[in-house]
């Protein structure tokens, strides 16, 4: 059922998201500020969600949706709690 066009598009998608993750990692290591690192981590979560969605299309299983939704929620909570900790010195007040 999978034609060559879709396989090529999936390969391009995996490659593009891999390069995007490498760029995010560069920004995560380089900084220069803490806010840059939080932003880089947030973007990495977004790109990994994209990878999971593409893997779900390739594998043909509907179970990858749960992993993607969980990662979206955990990534958001992580970003907000890290920001809250830097702003207030505490996460839950």
């Amino acid at each position: 059922m999978t034609t060559g066009v879709l396989e090529g598009a999936l390969a391009f998608g995996f490659a593009a998201l891999g390069v995007a993750l490498a760029l995010n990692l560069w920004r995560l290591v380089r900084g220069p500020g803490v806010a840059d690192r939080i932003l880089a981590l947030d973007t990495m979560v977004i790109n990994v969600i994209g990878l999971i969605v593409l893997a779900g299309i390739e594998g043909g299983s509907g179970t990858s949706f749960e992993a993607a939704l969980l990662l979206a929620m955990v990534g958001f909570v992580g970003t907000v709690s890290y920001c809250k900790f830097l702003l207030r010195g505490d996460i839950i007040e």
Binding site: T2, A9, G13, A16, R27, T43, N47
Partner: peptide
């Protein structure tokens, strides 16, 4: 449908790449 899905995948992955390129 294959063509449509492929175009959407290329578009989405391209946007993700451009966004991370802008981050750098």
């Amino acid at each position: 449908a294959d063509l449509f899905v492929s175009a959407l995948i290329v578009l989405g992955a391209g946007f993700a790449l451009v966004g991370s390129w802008g981050l750098v």
